[in-house]
């Protein structure tokens, strides 16, 4: 059993399918007049955020509350708490308060891993984004969204475009989509692909137009403007021209193809407003689906005497 969700790599095909199927059922709860289940009554879920991320926090908060868990939001952002000492002390505090699960967002890659294996805390740890490492629930909600639109993921061609080097979303998506049988191509300027990407379970390319041929899903990643100053690319204009998704590129996609973005978007940089607001864009749906998927994860980790994930099915 896996008590924690730290990496998309922790999920077997059975685990991932169970989460997505459970999310499917839970999504129906959101359509009901009473959007609440008693399942996690008496359980405490702490949202421990060392980084600002209102959208992820409220998504987890809504998910936990719909399952009747008690939710404590702990915003630990600030210069003095970026020291490790604080992560430990914070963890010990949460343990003393009886947290059954800690949903952690942290700027340091591996911080959720450290929390899960430190012995500081006994509850389940859910990685809500760690540094440039992973964001597994984002990958799950992306897969959920793809499945709803394309019915199956296996064999689908998914193109992920942008700052892969610094993207936890890309890492989790590559791992999860490989497990689910999709064919993933990462597209970025060479400066924004990590050394070692050749060993990932996906293809990579520097040519967006060539990669879009036959794509079922195009996922655009956020590109931060400050990367320009670190010489990852010469200018915003050149980046947009080579790697941005505009109406012209979108028009060459197959009719059923969808456009995704984990948000927040830099309109005009990696995606134009025309694309972001088009019918193909499922970006708002991704947000909605985030709640169902996170409900499923919390339920499967906390709902029973033991986690439903990581068994030897």
């Amino acid at each position: 059993m896996t008590r924690h969700l730290l990496s998309a790599a922790d999920l077997s095909l059975d685990d991932a399918t169970l989460i997505l199927d459970t999310a499917d059922e839970l999504a129906r709860v959101s359509d009901r007049p009473v959007k609440k289940l008693p399942t996690l009554r008496g359980r405490t879920v702490v949202n421990l955020f060392f980084e600002d991320s209102t959208r992820t926090r409220i998504s987890f908060e809504a998910a936990a509350k719909r399952l009747s868990a008690d939710v404590i939001n702990f915003s630990a952002k600030g210069s003095s708490v970026s020291k490790g000492e604080s992560l430990k002390d914070t963890a010990l505090t949460l343990e003393a308060m009886g947290a059954d699960a800690v949903v952690i967002r942290h700027p340091a890659s591996g911080a959720p891993h450290t929390l899960a294996h430190s012995g500081w805390i006994g509850g389940s740890i859910v990685n809500a984004g760690d540094g440039t490492h992973e964001h597994p629930t984002q990958a799950l909600l992306d897969a959920f969204t793809m499945r709803r639109h394309l019915s199956t993921i296996s064999g689908r061609k998914v193109v992920i475009v942008g700052d892969v080097l610094h993207s936890r979303v890309a890492r989790s998506n590559v791992l999860l989509l490989a497990t689910l049988g999709a064919e993933v191509t990462l597209v970025a300027p060479p400066t924004l692909l990590p050394v070692g990407v050749g060993q990932w379970p996906c293809e990579h390319s520097y040519d967006l137009d060539a990669s879009l041929v036959g794509a079922d899903v195009v996922m655009m990643l956020r590109v931060q403007r400050e990367r320009m100053n670190a010489a990852f690319f010469p200018s915003v204009r050149e980046y947009s021209r080579r790697y941005g998704l505009d109406a012209d590129r979108m028009s060459r996609l197959a009719d059923h193809a969808i456009v995704m973005h984990p948000g927040p978007m830099n309109r005009g940089l990696e995606i134009t407003a025309a694309v972001a607001d088009s019918d193909r864009a499922v970006i708002i749906e991704q947000v909605t689906n985030g709640v169902s998927v996170r409900m499923a994860v919390l339920y499967l980790l906390l709902g029973g005497s033991d986690s439903a994930l990581g068994g030897d099915q």
Binding site: S109, G110, D130, G131, T132, H133, E134, R168, R171, P194, V195, G196, V197, Q199, W200
Partner: peptide, 18 residues
């Protein structure tokens, strides 16, 4: 830099020391 730059750093999302 946080660790050797290579296949492992790419997976772990830690800044590489080439």
């Amino acid at each position: 830099a946080q660790m050797n730059e290579g296949a492992v750093s790419a997976v772990l999302g830690l800044r590489g020391w080439p």
